[in-house]
Amino acid sequence: MSIAIDKDKCIGCGKCHTVCPGSLIKIGEDKKAFIKYPKDCWGCTSCIKECPVYAIKFYLGADIGGMGTFAHTEKDGYILKWIFEHPNGENSEIEINQKESNKY
C-alpha cells in the first residue's frame, strides 16, 4: 500500500505534508510534494482526502494483491466520492454520505 503524487497536478500547498501521520511526505526544492519513504506508508489515505487538486492516489502493492488500480476521493459537501481508475482506462465510483452511519 502506498501513494503516488502527480507532480504536474501538485500545487505545493503542503496539506498532505502536514497531515501525514508518519511524516513521510516532503516538499521538494521544486515546491512539489513527494513521498520520501513509500514503503513506510500505512495506507490511511489522510493525504488523499486533504489534496485540493486530487493529485494524490493510493494503490495496493503487488505483494498484497494490487493490480494497478488507483483510488482518490473528491468531496462535495457531505458527499465523499471515491474514484477508482482501473488499468483498462475505465473509472468506477462509490459515493459515501458522511452524515450516514455505517450499516455494519
Partner: peptide, 16 residues
C-alpha cells in the same frame, strides 16, 4: 462503503 470509512485498502482489494 463501511470499509472505505475505516480501512479503504479492503474495498480496493475487492475491486482489484
Amino acid at each position: 462503503k463501511a470499509y472505505l470509512n475505516m480501512a479503504p485498502s479492503q474495498t480496493l482489494k475487492w475491486i482489484e
